[in-house]
Each structure stands twice: as structure tokens, then as C-alpha cells.
Amino acid sequence: MTVPVNPDCDIADINSAPPLPETFGYRELNDDGAAGSSALASETALAISYNGISQAVMMVTPGHLEDFVNGFSLSNDIVHSLNEIHDITLSESDGSRHAAVTLSNRAFWALKKYRRRLAGTSGCGICGVEAIEQALPRLTPLRPVPPPPAARLHDLRRHIREVQQLAQGSGALHAALYVDPEGVVRLCREDIGRHNALDKLIGAMAQARINPREGFVAITSRCGLELVQKAVRARFGTLISLSAPTAMTVQWARRHKLNLIHLPHRSPPRLYSPAP
């Protein structure tokens, strides 16, 4: 997909890899009061609109924003394929970003219908049955694939540290990675938000036309239910988490035929789904 050039900003800058962390000075709170400096992760507000209608404002790490918009649209069931996204125009103003997305007529009609349904709720805006349906959506189960061999996971933590370029300098960043069937890390996306990192990876994989059933995706963050839902919607075969999953996460992974593996620090990989 090509991103139209907005005359008010430099698209190459705001859609490229994230900028290097900015360095800030500090003084230690002890008797010495020594001064130092530290690189800190960047974040910005990104507003997303579809066909001129505002949809969401997210705090994200700048960079790979087109990947994020694509992945966000796919993993939130706004579109079913990138063919339904006709254009993305990225712009910048006063330090914040805006993504103006043009959807196909079918996708936009479905989105407007969903928004009208939510508009009928009371009080908080989204509550009761509507909130339950949004938090626990009905998803199409996957076609099972074999989990990766244990040898593919050897030294995975070390490989992840090597490719997490931003986190090496500042910390405070989650990562989502795609590892191909040969065990090679093909894509890595980092963000202050764990959902954002996975959305960026989903968008990058879709743009590269990678078959999500092959290889596996690894995440450095806690594996919550919403990340499994994104994985199922993206049609992943296997999701690997460096942090332990919750009970509901395992239940949903098993129900939807997603391979779910936890990679502890000093223990062998644990295959939670499919059930042993």
C-alpha cells in the first residue's frame, strides 16, 4: 500500500522506524546527589479516523505507524483484509499524529452500523451486554497446525534481545516478533504498548504477505486475553509469550485451536494449547 504524501509533514519520518530515544538528565536522591543521564522511550498520541469519522486515540511509540494502523484495523475487526483499506494519510501537528484512513464502502458501512449499535447504550456509553460482546467476541476457530519443535525455541530470548534495538537503549518497550519456519527472526516491532507492538507486527506481516500459519509469533509482554484474540483474528498458528498466560487466555487458545507456548527464563518451553 502506498501512503499519500501530506504537504504538511514528512511522511518518511513519521512512518519510518521509531526515532532514537531522547536523553534526559537526572540527579540521584542520595547523599552524593550525583548527576547522570538516561535515554527514555518516546511516545505520542495517534488519532485514527475512518472516512472522516474519528475512531480512536492511542498512545504509541512513533514510527511504523502505517503498520500499526493496518494491524489495528485488522485485529479490531474493522477490516478483513488490507484490500479494504484504500489509503492512509499520515500527518503531524504539535507533536501528535493523525492517521486518516479511507475504507472501502463495505467496510465503512459495517463500521458505521457497529457504531450506531453502540450509540444506543446508556450511561458510560458502552456498557452491559454491548461491553461483554466487545470483550468476549465470537471468533472463528483456527485450523490447527503443529507447534514448532523445541529446537526452534533454543536461545529465543537471546535472539529477541538482539533484535530489540530500541529497548536496548531505553527499556520500557514491548516487542512482537515473527520467526519464520527456519527459526530466523524476520520482523520485529516495538512499542510502549503491548497491544500496539502486536498490532504493528500484524500490519507488517499483512503488508509483506506472510502466511501467519507458518513459523510463529513471539511477544515479550504478559499474554492477556486480548492478545490471544488479536492472534486468532490475525490467523496465527502459534503464539509464544515470555510471560506466563492467564487461565482464561489458555482456555481461549484451546477453544480456538491456537498453539500457545510460555517460554520461562530457566525452564523448558511449556505448551499450554493444545491441551496435553
Rank of each mutant, 00 (worst) to 15 (best):
residue 151 A to P: 01
residue 146 P to W: 06
residue 171 G to W: 06
residue 170 S to N: 08
residue 124 C to A: 12
residue 159 H to L: 11
residue 76 N to Q: 13
residue 87 D to P: 00
residue 69 V to G: 05
residue 173 L to S: 05
residue 143 R to M: 07
residue 86 H to D: 10
residue 130 E to Q: 08
residue 179 V to I: 15
residue 142 L to T: 01
residue 85 I to N: 04
residue 95 G to P: 12
residue 192 I to Y: 01
residue 75 S to N: 12
residue 91 S to Q: 06
residue 105 N to V: 11
residue 69 V to C: 07
residue 159 H to M: 10
residue 139 L to Q: 12
residue 96 S to N: 15
residue 174 H to C: 14
residue 126 I to E: 04
residue 123 G to N: 10
residue 205 M to E: 02
residue 76 N to M: 08
residue 209 R to T: 09
residue 115 R to D: 03
residue 179 V to M: 12
residue 128 G to K: 03
residue 102 T to F: 02
residue 102 T to D: 13
residue 143 R to A: 10
residue 150 A to D: 14
residue 128 G to H: 02
residue 144 P to F: 07
residue 133 E to R: 08
residue 149 P to F: 09
residue 160 I to Y: 03
residue 174 H to Y: 15
residue 114 Y to N: 10
residue 135 A to W: 03
residue 97 R to P: 01
residue 168 Q to L: 10
residue 85 I to Q: 04
residue 82 L to E: 00
residue 174 H to P: 03
residue 137 P to Y: 08
residue 127 C to H: 02
residue 171 G to D: 06
residue 196 N to V: 08
residue 124 C to I: 09
residue 200 K to H: 08
residue 117 R to T: 12
residue 180 D to I: 06
residue 116 R to P: 00
residue 189 R to G: 02
residue 85 I to P: 04
residue 161 R to P: 00
residue 106 R to L: 08
residue 125 G to D: 03
residue 109 W to Q: 10
residue 133 E to V: 01
residue 172 A to I: 04
residue 190 E to C: 07
residue 103 L to A: 02
residue 191 D to I: 09
residue 100 A to V: 01
residue 125 G to C: 05
residue 131 A to L: 15
residue 191 D to G: 10
residue 195 H to D: 15
residue 79 V to M: 03
residue 125 G to V: 02
residue 126 I to G: 00
residue 163 V to N: 01
residue 105 N to D: 15
residue 205 M to P: 01
residue 203 G to D: 01
residue 106 R to F: 03
residue 154 H to I: 14
residue 105 N to A: 14
residue 92 E to W: 03
residue 143 R to W: 02
residue 70 N to R: 13
residue 110 A to C: 07
residue 164 Q to T: 04
residue 209 R to M: 06
residue 155 D to G: 11
residue 190 E to F: 09
residue 169 G to K: 12
residue 131 A to K: 10
residue 90 L to I: 06
residue 159 H to K: 15
residue 170 S to Q: 07
residue 156 L to D: 05
residue 183 G to N: 09
residue 171 G to Y: 05
residue 119 A to N: 12
residue 116 R to Q: 12
residue 185 V to N: 02
residue 82 L to A: 00
residue 98 H to E: 12
residue 79 V to D: 01
residue 87 D to R: 13
residue 96 S to K: 15
residue 192 I to R: 13
residue 158 R to L: 14
residue 88 I to P: 03
residue 107 A to R: 07
residue 181 P to K: 07
residue 70 N to V: 08
residue 180 D to K: 06
residue 174 H to R: 09
residue 72 F to C: 10
residue 151 A to C: 11
residue 111 L to R: 02
residue 111 L to G: 00
residue 95 G to C: 11
residue 74 L to E: 06
residue 195 H to I: 11
residue 195 H to M: 13
residue 153 L to W: 14
residue 99 A to F: 06
residue 108 F to R: 03
residue 68 F to W: 12
residue 127 C to Q: 04
residue 196 N to R: 08
residue 203 G to Q: 00
residue 81 S to G: 05
residue 183 G to R: 08
residue 173 L to C: 10
residue 118 L to A: 02
residue 101 V to A: 05
residue 88 I to S: 06
residue 170 S to T: 13
residue 80 H to K: 11
